[in-house]
Design a protein around this nucleic acid. Structure first.
Lengths: 351, 351
DNA sequence: TCTTTTCCGGAAGAGGTTTTCCTAATTTTC
DNA sequence: GAAAATTAGGAAAACCTCTTCCGGAAAAGA
């Protein structure tokens, strides 16, 4: 160090206006090429040189210039995430998973909210491509399949939650039917037989798939659904109204599988108001595992967690794979999980 | 057009491997500089040339290379958004506002979730700076002031929701006290006198500020708070418990200002269970205007909306200003709004 | 001491765009 | 029809980093 100080100060003074790697080079008394090698651990350098350069970089507070790097490497280590939902409740955990997966690759996300507007979406696709993103993840809000982002997109595209209608695309989605099956299996295993299903909008794939899963699982256990399937809306209020109607027509129901935690919360309050205790008289299971509702009040609600964060993580991983040339088309499903809480506890022993 | 076709095809053939602007230049039979001018509307060009170049760009599907552009201009038209919250309920609307503001400037957001971990936060700051972001927006989850992102950050930083402790920084926050005042004013104006306040954690600035606003507003109306301020947690369950305790000690309360919609929803159910009707016996107002809770069931809840989206928009605008050299340090507050719904409707006429 | 090998580090170019300067071509003016 | 004025478009540099190719110096071997 000391024997170099003359050279260092000399160069530094001579070239003190340089910025970026050149400033580091000047301070360390080496060429820019050497700095690059020292900082990236490439090339053949004396250890002392490497250390000297590192120290110089530290001193001038050097940070790599991403633009310059991308221009050379052709990669930006950046992905675009387009969500059709205004980053609603579903996009958020998915985003988190995406970030988890991409963070490992030192990648950053551009977040774009298309607000379900095709014009905005196309605009974002162009903007993202102009910024040379390495890939794009399209996050949906519903399970309903969606039209692909576009033809001839020169980077990999992964669809999360809402799959692409093109089977050649890569999509990562939740397993709605599996979730319903887990709920029903659990209810049956804990002794319930008169099971009803109150769920959301009939024109949502999520509701339809859950209902299918419900019917299939019931059939497998040799059970008949109580009063078919009650479609309504995704609101807490529908939980109240649905339960009221249900109990009026089938007062002997002993379990209700609800299409969402909001519906389940409404159902819980209404059951209490009608004098049924949970879980002794009626067991309750929701979907989403959304804590403001599952843990809002007693009893805490059992719920099917679609593992949205995992969906996001898988989508991120799929993208990394695709960037690595190992992309696999097709639809990948993520296993849901049943979170058991008080509302599906043991039934009152039949008298 | 026709008289140029020879030249065009000649150049195109000779240089068909070129990419980017060069490919367009070859196809249009002009130089790259001319293409740049034609596409950007700069320089002195014949209209026919401009059109020819545009057509060529269209034909080869040209998109500008963001990296190259940034390298020349020094601007990336990119901002980093660091949220301390896992993009929770508060960050989301703020983000939306940010995007609204920045979209006008054709800017894109890098979204980073620091998860309240200072190490992660510093990591993201470095990463963002390395990517040459034009600015950074730090989004908080609570109103509690936060330590600045760092010293010597070479780009403007705007703090949203959680202000910076350094008054020289630029922060955009909500007006908690103003929100409380609006709620109380409305209650008093509609004839309520025995008003209580049930709110969240005592060590959250949000709760403390709302409580202060509550006390001040009450004093201004010459009223005494019923039973002081009930601090608890931010949960629906606390709404139940708080109301139960409150009614036990002060059964003549005629309005409750709740620190959140979740608390208010719990309060609503408990009041109903105790035989008080809303709003005839007791009026109810929450904070957040979070529709799953305000519109969850009857009665729909009145609520103070802190206008988070506006906070985000203002933050974005402040950043654009700062980039324009017109940045203003200090704390900027955004006006809240009281959304009146059924729960604060007219009281039962006193017998 | 001279040759061969090994090791360090420098010079230069590429990547895509914008911009400045400058020349050539066209139009205007007398 | 020639000189002046204006306009159109080309050439090259700059932005910053990484990488390839090479030359020079030191070390090792003869």
């Amino acid at each position: 160090m000391t024997e170099n100080s003359f050279r260092e100060s000399g160069r530094a003074a001579r070239d003190s206006t340089a910025s970026g790697i050149a400033a580091v080079a000047a301070l360390a008394g080496v060429s820019t090429g050497t700095v690059s090698k020292a900082l990236n651990g490439t090339g053949q350098l004396r250890e002392s040189t490497r250390l000297r350069v590192r120290a110089a970089a530290e001193e001038v507070g050097w940070l790599p210039n991403g633009s310059a790097r991308s221009m050379r490497s052709g990669r930006t280590y950046t992905v675009g995430v387009i969500t059709t939902d205004s980053y609603g409740r579903f996009s958020i955990p998915i985003l988190r998973g995406v970030e988890d997966a991409l963070g490992l690759g030192e990648m950053l996300c551009f977040l774009c909210d298309s607000r379900d507007d095709p014009i905005r979406e196309q605009h974002y696709v162009r903007t993202l491509l102009a910024r040379q993103v390495d890939g794009i993840i399209a996050v949906g809000r519903k399970e309903d399949p969606r039209i692909p982002l576009g033809r001839d997109i020169p980077v990999p595209v992964i669809y999360a939650f809402a799959p692409s209608t093109d089977p050649e695309d890569c999509s990562v989605i939740g397993d709605e039917q599996g979730g319903a099956r887990r709920a029903i299996d659990h209810l049956v295993k804990t002794g319930r037989r008169r099971i009803a299903h109150i769920t959301g909008l009939e024109n949502h794939a999520s509701a339809v798939l859950r209902a299918e899963g419900f019917r299939t699982a019931m059939a497998e256990h040799g059970l008949e659904p109580v009063d078919g399937v009650w479609f309504g809306s995704w609101s807490e209020e529908w939980g109240h109204n649905g339960v009221r109607s249900l109990l009026a027509s089938s007062p002997d129901v002993d379990a209700i599988f609800c299409g969402s935690d909001q519906i389940a919360r409404g159902a819980a309050y209404e059951l209490a108001a009608l004098g049924r205790s949970i879980p002794e008289d009626v067991a309750l299971i929701g979907v989403d595992n959304w804590s403001p509702f599952t843990d809002g009040y007693r009893p805490h609600l059992s719920s099917v967690d679609l593992n949205l964060t995992t969906i996001g993580r898988r989508a991120g991983e799929a993208l990394l794979k695709a960037l690595d040339g190992r992309g696999e088309p097709g639809i990948q499903t993520v296993d849901p999980e049943l979170i058991v809480r008080e509302s599906s506890g043991p039934a009152r022993r039949r008298p």
